[in-house]
Design a protein around this nucleic acid. Sequence first.
DNA 1: CGCTCACATTTGCACAAGCGAATATATCAC
DNA 2: GTGATATATTCGCTTGTGCAAATGTGAGCG
Lengths: 135, 135
Amino acid sequence: MAMKTYSMELLFKALADRTRLRLLSLMGEDEVCVCYFVEVFKTNQPKISRHLAYLRRAGLVAARREGKWMHYRVATPPDAHAARIFMEVRAWLREEREMQRDRERLQQLCCAPRPPVQLKRAPRPASLAADAPRV
Amino acid sequence: MAMKTYSMELLFKALADRTRLRLLSLMGEDEVCVCYFVEVFKTNQPKISRHLAYLRRAGLVAARREGKWMHYRVATPPDAHAARIFMEVRAWLREEREMQRDRERLQQLCCAPRPPVQLKRAPRPASLAADAPRV
DNA sequence: CGCTCACATTTGCACAAGCGAATATATCAC
DNA sequence: GTGATATATTCGCTTGTGCAAATGTGAGCG
């Protein structure tokens, strides 16, 4: 299971950035569409894509295409030690205040009666798709 | 026990450097004198001091002065999550090949019948002090 | 006191990383 | 095919980080 070539630095460099930590926190256990990240962070889209690519290279997220949309979800890194540490990191993220605020904001965007224009047709995160009002 | 202001980035930035990981690995459970790091890595002394200062700012090591010598040891970061993660990191370090080689090299330097000039009078790491031959 | 030793800090430079703006790619609608 | 939408990548630019060399600090010795 453990992969010899996976380096500790690769993991820690990926985790040593606030934006990337916030992205991981927003994913939680769900798949999330890129456009939601852009809305929650109120930032430009290339910035999000760049950080997601970084996380993917470190084996911390995986991507799935659905038509025009890309869904990202947290993945398990190939090294056993890295996987254990990453689990602890995600537990930590769940308890951090700023991270909680981000997730609340994501929830509001998904369930808003009049979602922002950019999200009109965007597929919602899996856990919010069922009960959220469709446009 | 958990300290609110301790940031995740502080921890991961400290861990995202090979030299700092090697330093942590060399300490293991002991106090180690700065001069040993310099010898094991065969590098200049300011480089070691800078990285040790970085680790100290991140709460990952503590220092103790003994006359002219400074001894560094691994410390427990003030945040509970950080402490758990740091424990896993140290377990990982114990299994990494390059890190093992560093520790073997430290052991050789301590127990050598004719230690390098720079270490003639240096205090040895605690676990090696008892059985190692004195000069 | 001055001198040496062990370590810390500063300085200047090269390189890596994050940024926004612009551009490229890929899919869908027509 | 064209055009629109969603995402990825590239391009300068700025900032941060690690480095070696030089300098500073603090303790012990004579």
